[in-house]
Amino acid sequence: MRFFNGIEVSAEGSRGGLSLGWNGSHLVRLKSFSKNHIDVEVQEDESKPRWRFTGFYGATDFRNKGETWALLPRLGENNSLPWMVGGDFNEILYTNEKK
C-alpha cells in the first residue's frame, strides 16, 4: 500500500483484520484496538496540536451491531482532543434494512 508506517490488527481466522497506515514523520500513539477499531492520537509535528483518529469497522452480523455501536461512546469517554472517526460502519448491509 506504499505506507511507511502502520498499525495492523490481525484477522481472526480467514476474515477480518484492520490496518491503519500513514506516511511522514507524524507522531502517532496507539491508544487501543480491537477487531472493530484502531484508536490513535496524532501529532503532525511538535508545533501543531494533537488530535485523535479512530478507524472503525462495524459488525456485519445483525446480532453484534449493538455491541459495536456501544463501542463508540466508550471510546469517546474522557476525550478532550478533536476527534475524527472514519471507516465502514456496516449500518445498512441489505436493501430490506433501509427505512
Score class of each variant (00 low, 15 high):
Ser80Asp: 15
Thr60Lys: 07
Arg52Leu: 03
Arg63Ile: 08
Val40Leu: 10
Tyr57Pro: 01
Phe4Asp: 07
Phe33Met: 03
Asn64Ser: 13
Arg50Pro: 00
Gly13Lys: 15
Leu18Gln: 05
Lys65Glu: 03
Glu8Pro: 00
Gly87His: 06
Ile38Leu: 03
Ile38Ala: 03
His37Asn: 10
Tyr94Asp: 06
Glu12Trp: 00
Ile38Cys: 03
Gly6Cys: 05
Ser47Pro: 02
Pro49Thr: 05
Ile7His: 01
Leu75Thr: 02
Gly66Arg: 12
Arg15Val: 06
Phe4His: 08
Asn23Val: 04
Glu44Thr: 05
Gly17Leu: 15
Arg15Gln: 06
Asn5Cys: 09
Ser25Pro: 02
Glu91Phe: 13
Gly58Arg: 12
Ser14Pro: 10
Gly66Lys: 13
His37Trp: 04
Trp69Ser: 07
Val9Thr: 09
Arg63Tyr: 10
Ile92Gly: 00
Asn36Trp: 04
Val9Ser: 04
Ala11Gln: 12
Ser14Ile: 15
Ser10Pro: 13
Val42Phe: 02
Ser19Gln: 09
Asn78Pro: 06
Glu41Val: 14
Phe89Arg: 04
Asn23Ala: 04
Arg63Leu: 12
Leu71Val: 13
Asp61Met: 11
Gly24Gln: 09
Asp45Phe: 07
Ile7Arg: 01
Pro73Val: 09
Ser19Met: 15
Met1Ile: 10
Trp22Lys: 01
Gln43Asp: 05
Lys65Met: 05
Glu91Ala: 12
Pro82Gly: 03
Gly66Ser: 09
Ser14Tyr: 15
Phe62Gln: 13
Glu46Gln: 12
Gly16Asn: 11
Gly86Ile: 07
Val85Cys: 13
Leu18Val: 07
Glu12Phe: 02
Gly58Phe: 11
Lys65His: 09
Arg50Glu: 00
Asp45Met: 10
Gly16Asp: 08
Asn64His: 14
Ser32Asn: 08
Arg2Asn: 14
Trp22Glu: 04
Ser19Pro: 00
Ser25Cys: 10
Gly55Glu: 01
Thr54Met: 07
Met84Asp: 00
Gly6Ile: 05
Phe53Pro: 01
Tyr94Lys: 15
Asn79Gln: 10
Gly66Asp: 11
Glu91Lys: 14
Lys35Arg: 15
Gly16Trp: 10
Ser34Thr: 03
Arg52Val: 04
Tyr94Phe: 15
Glu12Pro: 01
Trp51Ser: 05
Asp61Phe: 05
Leu71Asn: 09
Trp69Asp: 05
Phe4Lys: 09
Arg63Lys: 15
Phe3Cys: 15
Phe89Thr: 04
Leu81Ser: 07
Gly55Ser: 14
Trp69Cys: 03
Pro82Asp: 09
Thr60Gly: 05
Asn96Ile: 05
Trp83Ala: 07
Asn90Ser: 10
Asp88Lys: 02
